[in-house]
């Protein structure tokens, strides 16, 4: 028996919007720790890892570990029927091949049940090693989204370079090239407007902008984004999901032939 009640149902709606472009089908795993997902895109260039900790749910019952295969586009269709202020409850019986999404309006005057078929998905689980990153950049998520969008109108790839001067995003294409430098800036009114650069050593990596733009679908989840870079490792682009967890996008770099 599985029953997860999330008062801030809009978080789940935003999570689905953030990952459904990148991943088509995925297994949602439920355990005592929380509700999680790990999936790669079809070309195995990017990986998304989601964790919503059990403590973040108003009610969290998971009698035994359960893996539920879902088509994310179909989950998104279901969740779009929930109001932004609705409380969302996920329910599944042991051995059942369906999951039920229950939507309750804040004043309890409307309660809806949407039952969705589960599917069998063969997915490989990857071990993500703990790593020391050469540079960690924390910046406003809207600013990062703007940079990725702007650069993708010029080129297909972005070079992200961190030096003591700041973080530089560069691209080049047929019509010309572009460089955007963001310097550390902590003298802001609100902490979420700060750009904070922690650098152990300079790092410069090249990534496909198409994927970066896809990651920025998570922007509505968090005012800030954290970009962790290490040479010879996938970049990690992390968005916090309120105080209950995170979405981490891993993207393999483009490397010299």
């Amino acid at each position: 028996m599985l029953e997860l009640r999330l008062v801030q149902g809009s978080l789940l709606k935003k999570v689905l919007e953030a990952i459904k472009e990148l991943v088509t089908d995925a297994n949602f795993d439920c355990s005592a720790t929380g509700f999680s997902l790990q999936a790669m895109d079809s070309s195995h260039v990017a990986l998304v890892a989601l964790l919503l900790r059990s403590e973040g749910f108003e009610h969290y019952r998971c009698d035994r570990n359960l893996s539920m295969g879902m088509n994310l586009n179909n989950v998104s269709k279901m969740l779009r029927c929930a109001g932004n202020d609705d409380i969302i409850t996920l329910k599944a019986d042991d051995g059942s091949d369906t999951v039920t999404f229950m939507f309750e309006s804040p004043n309890q005057d409307k309660i809806a049940d949407f039952e969705m078929k589960l599917m069998d998905i063969d997915s490989e689980h990857l071990g993500i090693p703990e790593a020391e990153y050469h540079a960690i950049v924390k910046m406003p998520s809207a600013e990062f989204a703007r940079i990725c969008k702007d650069l993708s109108s010029i080129g297909d790839t972005v070079v992200i370079s961190v030096t003591k001067e700041g973080v530089k995003f560069s691209t080049r294409g047929d019509i010309g090239n572009a460089n955007i430098v963001c310097r550390q800036n902590t003298t802001v009114d609100k902490p979420e407007e700060a750009t904070i650069i922690e650098m152990q050593e300079p790092v410069s990596l090249t990534f496909a902008l198409r994927y970066m733009n896809s990651f920025t679908k998570a922007t509505p989840l968090s005012n800030t984004v954290t970009i962790s870079l290490s040479s010879e490792l996938p970049v990690v682009v992390e968005y916090k999901v309120a105080d209950m967890g995170y979405i981490r996008f891993y993207l393999a770099p483009k490397i010299e032939d």
Binding site: V45, G127, P234, E256
Partner: peptide, 14 residues
């Protein structure tokens, strides 16, 4: 030129 690497090059199956 630059070649796109894959996630499985860095992270192994568990």
């Amino acid at each position: 030129g630059c070649k796109q690497s894959t996630i499985t090059k860095y992270f192994g199956k568990v």
